[in-house]
Nucleic acid binder design. Structure first.
Lengths: 148, 148
DNA sequence: GTTGACTCTAGACCTTACTCTAAGGTTTAT
DNA sequence: ATAAACCTTAGAGTAAGGTCTAGAGTCAAC
């Protein structure tokens, strides 16, 4: 009604989440639409919508809602100290993301090998599991040090 | 005692998870060590340990325990039908993994930009948030179609 | 002027993935 | 031979991230 605002159902539809989820995010401080209609309906601005988009993206990448809350709260000001803090926090997240990308790549290779090796080839595999693929191309050499 | 088997505490230590977690995985069919000592202690073979390694890796990559269960159950036999099924399933997972890798890359770029732009440069940023970075380099153009 | 689609709040409930507790048996070291 | 460190089971409890329900107000259309 106001300008380019969306009501909760519209935003939920666009974002592919439920209205409950949007209210849940609001309750947990990840979102807070400033506007309300006369009747008390939430009105989401384009900035709010972008925020939702970011939240979902960060979630898919493996951040928890708490971490996303912290990411959203990041704000560099003239204050030198805050600047340091932000850099440290962000660089930490970067390390995590890089590790996860590498692990993803390994998983991708394993899946690809499984897909290639097992089907449609000239030489029909007689027996093949993902664990065998992993040991075959050496990735999974019992690197049991999950705890970094 | 037997050969190269590990008791639950040893495997848990190596894998960086709790003993409870290993029993939990067993209860949910992701793991089932065949051997027990006289006293009824679980004895994990190297293959069991590899399985644990796979589970943790797959988890970090974003698969749920249910999905991991299915991945572990994949087994290509001479049976043509099973082969088709496996390929379909694996290719589906490959698509997911690829999407996630791309999203990770975008998140990495955003974090990198934030890290670079906000600190230590000659030109001190006066104001900068992750959302502003995102809109600045165009990634987050309200692509609100999270639901594929 | 009322039917149907939409929104509100508060609070109960659910799933996933553990984590802890209790009550007890085993193994090793002293 | 007994304490300390290990293992067993069954079942209750927890945290994260929603999801559902009830009861009620709102808005557009017929």
């Amino acid at each position: 009604m106001d300008e380019k605002t969306l009501r909760i159902g519209q935003l939920a539809g666009l974002a592919g989440v439920s209205q409950d989820t949007l209210r849940f995010y609001e309750k947990h401080g990840l979102l807070n639409p400033q506007l309300r209609s006369e009747a008390g309906y939430r009105l989401y601005s384009p900035a709010d919508a972008q925020r939702v988009s970011f939240i979902l993206s960060a979630k898919r990448v493996g951040f928890t809602l708490n971490e996303i809350h912290d990411l959203l709260a990041l704000e560099v000001t003239r204050d030198e100290k805050s600047c340091e803090d932000v850099k440290r926090f962000v660089d930490e997240k970067l390390i995590t993301v890089n590790q996860r990308i590498q692990e993803m790549q390994r998983m991708k290779n394993s899946l690809q090998t499984l897909s290639n090796a097992c089907c449609g080839g000239d030489e029909p595999a007689t027996h093949c599991t993902i664990l065998e693929v992993l040991s075959a191309h050496g990735d999974a050499e019992l690197n049991l040090q999950g705890a970094v």
